[in-house]
Design a protein around this nucleic acid. Structure first.
Length: 404
RNA sequence: GGGUCGGUGGCAGAGUGGUCAAAUGCACCUGACUGUAAAUCAGGCGGCGAAAGCCUACGGGAGUUCAAAUCUCUCCCGGCCCA
């Protein structure tokens, strides 16, 4: 599946993943379409930038408009008019993010965790929902997802060793249930999946503890897959979860260092929710193939734009290594790119594109002064332009990492 | 011409003797965002100063008072009503 190439400074895993929908070249970044849309951008534009896979969310699509409705619409691809592949997150992250938010706002958790699953209170209408590992698989199958994620628990940081341990054990038990249920459903619907079934990824947890991260990975690998009714090869891919939840930045490198040697080389690895360009760079070098993050779109909407730094081009291995070293040390500044805040006063009369060398739609056709103006007057077109640019930047980043 | 109500920071608009360099909203400036309840959130926003603090300010001027955006007189300007 993956061709592993030693490019001289790190092991780069350049290859491809074949989903039931098509081919995706690795390493790659996935734009996020949580509720069935990449905010402010059409699927055609996403495809035009070069993306082959987008991410949807089980929890949000389950609540609205409902996975069965989407199924009747012909699946999520058809529903949202996306011709590429789709990975769906399991809803595990919402246990973390909505739980923390509810706790902050109401002093109590809006999410109740039990062995059975996670009980949510719908943030909009107050309805209660029980998301179990089996339910999460059902939803993702209904959505027609190409890469399905196991329901996991993503503990916040800081997290005690004991809590992280309990959490990872639960994630493993849920993963077993997901695996068993997933393969039961696949074998029950052989006809439907004869041209190809979705892939199923497990998620490694364990917070910032070396023992626990390794334990999590080992547990997930040592499952008796055949006994659970699936192929003995087990998982179709491995995700690293529970990262970038508030832990010190340098922890990321350690976690990847502990984990990647344990993961099967021929299976894709997905670092969930990351990240900044230098973090992605570092992770690719550590052997990660797949990324997703809200940063390019969300920060774009908030006025932050990513620009290549021509003064410090990462043309040599030494440049890249220096950047990686900075990232390992938790330094925020990577030298190969900059961010600008387009709503800053200094761009008021800047009649140049965001990046002269960028070939995205925004840079080809519009100036910083114009985009700043759109932000100032709250025009939605601004969000479209910066989202296109930032995603194009992330796409270019992945292309650069492939050719380094 | 008479009466009446009103004139507050870039705008709107509170405040009606001290706790007021003046609520709040908008605008403006800066920052934060990592498996998206996020076109969100936080901070700043008279001048000088690192700070303590000092100076200048609630239409203009003159008073009363220990103390005035707040009370009095007067002038200017605006809304409404009457002639």
């Amino acid at each position: 599946m993956l061709i592993i190439r030693d490019s001289g400074f790190c092991e780069s895993r350049i290859g491809k993943i074949e989903t039931k929908k098509g081919v995706v070249d690795t390493p790659f970044f996935m734009p996020i379409a949580t509720k069935g849309s990449i905010k402010h951008i059409s699927p055609e534009e996403i495809e035009k930038i070069g993306f082959q896979l987008v991410l949807g969310n089980t929890y949000h699509l389950w609540l609205r408009p409902g996975d069965e409705l989407i199924n009747r619409a012909g699946g999520l691809h058809e529903f949202m008019n996306w011709s590429g592949s789709i990975l769906t997150d399991s809803g595990g992250f919402q246990v973390f993010s909505l739980g923390a938010r509810a706790k902050k706002n109401f002093g109590a958790s809006g999410v109740k965790l039990t062995e059975k699953g996670a009980e949510f209170v719908d943030h909009i209408n107050g309805n209660r929902y029980m998301l179990t590992p089996e339910k999460s698989i059902d939803i993702q199958l209904n959505l027609g997802s190409d890469i399905i994620m196991c329901l996991d628990e993503c503990p916040p940081y800081p997290c005690s060793y004991e809590d992280a341990d309990k959490s990872l054990e639960l994630t493993t038990r849920w993963a077993e249930r997901c695996f068993k249920y997933f393969h039961k459903k696949i074998s029950e619907n052989k006809e439907k999946y004869k041209k190809g079934r979705p892939m199923l990824f497990c998620i490694v947890q364990g917070s910032v503890y070396e023992n626990l991260r390794k334990k999590s990975a080992k547990q997930l690998l040592s499952i008796n897959f055949e006994k659970l009714g699936g192929p003995k090869e087990g998982w179709d891919g491995f995700a690293v979860g529970g990262v970038a939840v508030g832990e010190p930045r340098e922890k990321l490198y350690e976690i990847l260092e502990w984990l990647t040697p344990l993961l099967p080389k021929e299976k894709p690895r997905y670092l969930m929710g990351l990240g900044r360009p230098e973090e992605i760079t570092l992770a690719v070098c550590a052997g990660i193939d797949m990324f997703d993050c809200v940063i390019p779109t969300r920060e774009g909407r908030h006025g932050r734009i990513f620009v290549w730094n021509e003064k410090f081009p990462t043309k040599t291995i030494e440049d890249l290594e220096r950047n990686i070293q900075n990232t390992k040390e938790g330094k925020k500044i990577a030298t190969f790119y900059n961010t600008i805040n387009i709503s800053n006063e200094k761009y008021k009369e800047d009649f140049h594109p965001i990046d002269e060398n960028c070939d995205c739609y925004a840079c080809k056709n519009y100036t910083k002064a114009y985009i700043k103006h759109l932000f100032a007057v709250n025009e939605a077109f601004a969000f479209r332009l910066v989202s296109i640019h930032n995603l194009a930047f992330y796409y270019q980043l992945m292309q650069k990492l492939k050719t380094k």
